[in-house]
Design a protein around this nucleic acid. Structure first.
Length: 485
RNA sequence: GGCCCGUUGGAGAAACGGUUUAACUCACUUGCCUUUCACGCAAGCAUCCACGGGUUCGAAUCCCGUACGGGUCACCA
């Protein structure tokens, strides 16, 4: 019994943010690490912020990284419904109970009333705290107003008393004075519950044991505890997480133009690499291992090793890790992932698998591919000076000799399709010409690509470009060299 | 502004009062390997843990204060 249950409770407001994904990850890990259940709940109580399609993005993202939920709107479960907009009746029912228990009251103030109070406080230079005049109504009076059709909200009642203390698994003991807690709205005038209420009711009803969420809730948690207490419910274990930052002062957020999970994926990052990377943002393993499968993470993760301070998202390290993931793939797997990018950049008919082969060791993000292979379709304009490399000790005469010899090789190859014969012939060139490897390969590579840096070199490029093109580009190179005074 | 939280190198971080002359990873620098780039390998990169006091035989580690940063004070979550 007492099965561990965590929940990921996003609002369907658009793309999946990195910080949200990390929260989901940790929630999953907390549950799965103890053989528990991971639940997905959609918090759509703010109809103004609802974005079409956002729920699908949530499903797709979780699925693509392997964060499979045991219960949720799409898969069902014993504690449904899992979408808050379908639980309105439940909130209303519990709001009435809370009022009866003395934990909440009806409030008939308009937004203008409150604004007036705030302005008055500002004018007086005193810190604003809403004092609800509706406390003057007796329960019967309030009920009468409600029955008469007055517009109302249900507001949490916070009576003076002992300071609120609770324990958080990462931040330790948190104490907040009741006086500074404001009486938040629990049920809006449109009948929807606010997060402040729906969250508590659902977590309890869904038997959530561990509430894992961002540390922006650290100071409002006492309010939620008061609700648990009013109902006589057991408070959950709290795990508040430090934020994921863009830089020292700003949180990573889509609104600031920072990359969302899908932005990263569309740039050529692997979802699993992203997940692995963000696991390390706010948590550190006991060992020196950094590359983890989800299963390994599940075993290694512990809340006790979570950090209290914010972590800055470092795209450079993600890049490195993504490269590690790419290189760990089989050639077939890599090729499949690279193909869309290759097709985007290469229109010449050639052995794309061979291109993948030379690419796999050098790519860290798939999106780099098009730019890396752009020379395959078309030989760029390049300066003849590129042939002369001090370390390779190449000069005009050597380059011409190397290219002429390579030209002969190309003409002599009957079966261009077999890489081996071509490569063996090129490899024989340095010895044949009495030159160093670099002195032969450098000019060939330059003639083939016209670029300073390329994936693959003299051994691979002629094959990939094809006989006709290899010969053509070599002639272009020879012409440039001969033109030179 | 009140309250809550945080502060170890450019980034992620380890360290739980003594084995620390502060792990490890990314980035950076250098060298090796090598037909370029990359991969891989090797080395270097904080005289010091925001600052100031205190406790202690001993502090990055405990306490207090200051500074700085973040969060929160919505009919948003």
């Amino acid at each position: 019994m007492n099965n561990v249950r965590t929940r990921f409770a996003p609002s369907p407001t658009g793309y999946m943010h990195i910080g949200n994904l990390r929260t989901a990850l940790y929630e999953y890990l907390v549950a799965k690490g103890q053989g528990g259940d991971f639940i997905l709940r959609i918090e759509d109580t703010d109809q103004n912020r609802y974005v079409e399609g956002a729920v699908e993005i949530i499903y797709d993202t979780l699925k693509s990284v392997g964060l499979i939920h045991d219960e949720g709107p799409d898969v069902g479960g014993d504690f449904g419904p899992y979408t808050q907009s379908e639980r309105l009746g439940i909130y209303k029912e519990y709001a009435v109970k809370l009022i009866e228990a003395g934990g909440a009251h009806y409030c008939f103030c308009s937004e203008e009333d409150i604004a007036k109070q705030r302005e008055a406080a500002e004018a007086a230079g005193t810190p604003f705290k809403f004092r609800d005049p509706c406390h003057r109504y007796t329960p019967t009076e309030a009920q009468a107003k409600v029955d008469a059709g007055s517009s109302y909200v249900v507001r949490q009642t916070i009576k003076p008393g002992e300071p609120c203390v609770y324990h958080d698994e990462v931040y330790g003991e948190i104490t907040v004075e009741r006086e500074i807690l404001d009486e938040s709205i629990l049920l809006k005038s449109d009948g929807f519950a606010t997060y402040n209420f729906a969250n508590v009711i659902d977590d309890h009803l869904m038997a959530i044991t561990h509430v894992v969420r961002g540390n922006e809730y650290l100071s409002s948690t006492p309010k939620y505890n008061l609700i648990y207490d009013s109902f006589g419910w057991q408070r959950p274990t709290y795990v508040h997480l430090p934020p994921v930052m863009k830089d020292e002062q700003n949180k990573l957020s889509k609104r600031n133009g920072d990359a969302s999970f899908q932005d990263l994926v569309s740039k050529g990052y692997l979802g699993k690499a992203v997940l692995n990377y963000i696991a390390l943002l706010g948590w550190s393993p006991e060992t020196e291992q950094e590359i983890y499968t989800l299963e390994e993470l599940t075993k290694a993760f512990s809340v006790a090793r979570c950090s209290k301070s914010p972590a800055i998202f470092d795209i450079e390290k993600l890049k490195w890790m993504n490269g590690m993931y790419l290189r760990a793939l089989s050639l077939d797997e890599f090729h499949e992932l690279a193909l869309p990018w290759l097709n985007q950049a290469i229109h010449r008919v050639c052995d794309l698998k061979e291109v993948s082969k030379i690419l796999q060791q050098r790519v860290s993000v798939l999106g780099e591919i098009p730019e890396m292979v752009d020379f395959i379709d078309e030989l760029p304009e390049y300066d003849v000076e590129m042939y002369f490399h001090k370390k390779m000790k190449t000069d005009k005469e050597i380059c011409i000799r190397a290219l002429e010899a390579s030209l002969e090789v190309y003409h002599g190859i009957q079966h261009w399709e077999s890489v081996d014969e071509l490569q063996a012939s090129i490899q024989a060139l340095p010895e044949k010409l009495g030159l160093k490897n670099g002195q032969v390969y450098w000019p060939i590579r330059t003639a083939m690509t016209g670029k300073q840096f390329t994936p693959g070199g003299a051994l691979e490029m002629p094959y990939i470009l094809g006989k006709e093109e290899a010969i053509h580009r070599t002639k272009v190179g020879l012409h440039k060299l001969r033109e030179l005074k």
